[in-house]
Structure formats: C-alpha cells, structure tokens
Design a protein around this nucleic acid. Structure first.
Length: 435
RNA sequence: GGACGGGUACCGAAGCGGUCAACCGGGCUGGACUGUAAAUCCAGUGGCUUAGCCUUCGGAGGUUCGAAUCCUCCCCCGUCCA
C-alpha cells in the first residue's frame, strides 16, 4: 500500500472503467468510454480562484486529473482567472461578490503551487499543463465575442439550464454578468480545443450544463466532437457539507489547516464514508480496497480504513515528514504520554492549538487560581463554567485531571517553567506560554 | 390607518401576581460506554467572593409587601381589513 508520487506510467485497463469502479462517474456523454480506451486525449478541469488555497473539496477534481494522466492522457488544469472575475451561478442561490483582479491573481499563484504535487509537468509524452483563461478572456473583444460565440447560444437554451432557471425563480434574480458565465466557460472549452486539442471536460455534477454548452459550441464552431464527464458531489453520512469541520474548512494549505488537523479530519471519517473516500482520494487498487472493506465490516473498531485513508492523503498532500509529525502529535494527544516530551516538542505538537501568553509574574508566589486561568485563557467563558467543568471532571492540566477547583497554579506546574497544557474534554486543548 | 395575535435564555416553546434564574424539547459543553465513532445513558447550560448574593423574561414608566405575570406609553414582528 505504498503511496505513489506523480508519475506517468500508463496503467492497464481503461480510464473510464477506473473512474467507474471508484464511483467517480455521475454522468458522461455517450461514447466517451470507447474513446478513452482507444485514444489518448487531453482533458481539462476548471479550478475556481475564489480563495488563495484549494480546500479538500477540490481533491476529487485533482485526483481525476492525476488518474487521467496515469492512464496516458493529458491533464489540463485551468485556473479561472477570467471566469473568476465573473462568478459561476451554478449551485449558488445568490449573486456572488465580485473579486478584483489582484485578488484573483494572488489566488491563482496559491492554487498553482497546490496542484503541482499531483501532476507531472515534465512527462515526455503527456505533460500536465496549467493555464489561466484570463490569457484569452482578458483580451476578448465584446463585439467579437457576441458575433462568434453569442450567436451560437439561444437565450432559450441558456434559460432552460438548471443553474439559470433556479435563479430566475428566486427573488434575487440573476445578473446579466452571471448569466453570461456559461458562455465564457463554453468559450474556454472551445479555446482549449483549439489550442491544445482538448476534447474532454471534467467537473462536478453541477457543471454538467456548462460542460454540455462547451461541447455544443465546439461542435458548431469547429465541427468537432467533444465530451464531458461529471463526478458526483462528495457527501458524508452525517449530512453536513464535505470538507467542513467545527473549526472550519479543511484547506490544502498547511498554513491554514495544519497537517495534524488534516490528518485528523480523515481519521475521523465515518465508517459509512470511508470506503468511497478511499476510492476517490487514494491510489489503492481494487484488491486493497476490497480488503479494507472487509476490515471495516468485520472489525470497525480497528479503523484500518480510516488510518489508511488519513495516511495516504496526508502524505500525498503534505509529504512524508508532515505525515510523521501528524501521527506523532496524534499519539501524544490521544495516548497521553505528555511527560515524554520536552517543552519545545510540545510547542511543535500543539502548533495549531489556541494558545495564550502570560507574564511569568502571574505564576510567581502563590500563583493564579485555576478557575481564573481557565477563564482568562478562554477555555471557560466564566469562572462559574470553569467550576462546573472541574466538578464534572472534564478539565486536565498537563494531561492530569484537575479535581480541586480551589487549587492555584504556580511556576512548579509549568513544564520547564514555561509551558502549561490545559485541556477541556477530549480534544479541546489550550496552550499557556509563560513569557 | 383599523382589527386581532405575538415578542421569555443559543433556537423552539411553557409560565400569566409569590414556591421562577424561569417546565419541556433541540442545540451546545462535560462525564460514562466505545473505536479520537455512531447509538445510548448521566450531568450541566446568566454572573459571582456559590448553604447565599446579584442581574435577567422587547423598551421605559407605574400598581403592589412582592411582577416574566396586572396597568400606561413606546418599539418591533405576524395575520387579516383599508
């Protein structure tokens, strides 16, 4: 079950079959399966530059491209520098806030670097490409656009699309700007078809309408056949939005979501979701996945599948060193062997835990009351709450349960005289640094 | 503009003169069990110097020994009529 890095060694079988067994085909244009088994094609997916980092919601599209490349096809990631300035109405009930060009430019740079670990840009035969559609949309003249592209779309056709219709029914309506989005995306497909012989567009199921519009445009303008394939929306058994936790979105950027949290996110995957996720997000082959499926059914408590998922995805996104750190941190946080670590190691492990700084005077002499400390670090909203927590046995100081609500904290309690680890419940840590 | 109905803690919702810091449900937070899960069970959920005290029931006044509860005015929301 080793984790393979980006590579272009073609795999056997057809890409379509591969997508299928992994549950990644929600819908596809007729005949696509045939073409993928016979020819090597160029395919693209668009990434939305709404934020400077991709989050794990983009992992499925990324894996789609990566798999495609392994099957000998050529992946193109298009970052929507141009379309990002417009805003896609698909899946949105409200008009979007427009981003300015500078923001989009910054976001593009971040996204580009996050795609790089997944795709091989130096493959001899089918190197991956990242393109920015601002390159052509930016200098597209309005008159040309209306004559060459607009002529191929009837308003009737556009209005019949689900993404538009829903907004027509809503109170807010849809602006002309967003209404035009579909045409711009179609134009992208046309342009990529022209420049890079791209004949396939992939996307989430909400992109189906936009993708078909592009294929249609290619047929009309260039007489060529183009295809589309959409993957399903990633769901979770809890019915919440995939990729969100109590602490927010799970980003790919380690600055935003630490590798530890990232690893934990996957480790905490529901039993019902773990096999689909493994199919989506790892390179494990069919026999390995089936083995894990048996493991989940037979001894769910072992969480072999979750562990495998977390290990694989964390390593793929953040590298082996970060994975090692995340696993070490997990061990300390859930195994409780805190004494074994030095203050600086603890700082490292708790890097992403909220922390408060206190002047060393606070701990001098008789020190500070424990309840006050709880309150002042924000771990408890009031002293009363702190008291209740202690009474119910839910508070730990340096991983030792606190039973005496009247106790004070002095310098003696600090690890190496400079660090305290407060914990509320099982997972709620707060670091106190003595300065 | 008129007629009703209503505004209670994070949300929903009881209470309609004292025993109300306010039933109950949800949420949330702890605990037990467990697999860092789900389900279940238990506890807590305004503040404090915690056998007690203080501040809360849309807002401001008033009646009363005593008000979330009664009265007056005001603000806001819903429904119907104009």
């Amino acid at each position: 079950m080793s984790q393979a890095r980006p590579q272009t060694m073609p795999q056997s079988g057809s890409l379509f079959e591969e997508y299928s067994w992994r549950g990644m085909v929600f819908d596809a244009t007729p005949g696509l399966s045939d073409i993928l088994s016979k020819e090597s094609v160029s395919a693209y997916i668009g990434f939305d530059p709404t934020a400077s980092s991709l989050h794990i919601g983009s992992l499925l599209p990324i894996m789609c491209l990566a798999r495609l490349q392994r099957f000998g096809h050529t992946p193109i990631a298009i970052v929507g520098g141009g379309t990002g300035l417009i805003g896609d109405p698909s899946g949105k009930t409200k008009e979007r806030q427009l981003l300015n060009a500078v923001q989009v430019e910054e976001n593009l740079a971040g996204i580009r670097s996050q795609l790089e670990p997944f795709l091989d840009f130096n493959a001899a035969r089918n190197p991956a490409r990242i393109v920015n559609n601002l390159d052509w949309l930016g200098r597209l003249g309005l008159i040309d656009f209306l004559r060459d592209t607009g002529k191929h779309f009837t308003v009737n056709y556009m209005m019949s699309k689900e993404s538009v219709r829903r907004r027509l029914d809503s109170e807010d309506g849809i602006s002309y700007t967003e209404f035009t989005y579909m045409m711009l995306q179609a134009y992208d497909f046309l342009k990529l078809n022209e420049l890079h012989d791209c004949t396939l567009q992939l996307g989430g199921s909400d992109q189906w309408g936009n993708i078909l519009a592009g294929a249609e445009l290619i047929r009309r303008v260039r007489g060529g056949k183009a295809h589309g394939l959409v993957f399903p929306l990633v769901t979770n058994a809890a019915g919440t939005k995939f990729g969100k936790t109590e602490s927010g979105t799970v980003w790919l950027d380690p600055e935003r979501t630490s590798p530890y949290r990232f690893y934990q996110f996957w480790l905490n995957t529901d039993d019902r979701d773990v096999i689909p996720y493994i199919k989506y997000f790892t390179w494990l082959d069919r026999p390995d996945v089936e083995e894990l499926e048996v493991a989940v059914a037979g001894r769910p408590g072992q969480r072999e599948a979750q562990r495998t998922l977390a290990r694989n995805v964390t390593e793929m996104v953040h590298g082996p060193a970060a994975l090692e750190g995340a696993e070490r941190a997990s061990k300390v946080l859930f195994g409780g062997a805190m004494e074994a670590l030095s203050a600086s190691e603890l700082l490292d492990v708790f890097e992403e835990a909220p922390s408060s700084e206190f002047d060393s005077d606070v701990f001098a002499g008789d020190g500070i009351g424990f309840l006050d400390l709880m309150n002042r670090t924000g771990l408890a909203a009031s002293r009363g709450e702190a008291r209740r927590l202690v009474k119910s046995g839910g508070v730990y100081l340096n991983n030792v349960r606190v039973v005496d609500e009247a106790r004070s904290i002095t310098r003696q309690d600090c690890i190496e005289g400079r660090l305290l680890v407060l914990r509320k419940g099982k997972k709620n840590y707060r670091l106190v640094q003595v300065t």
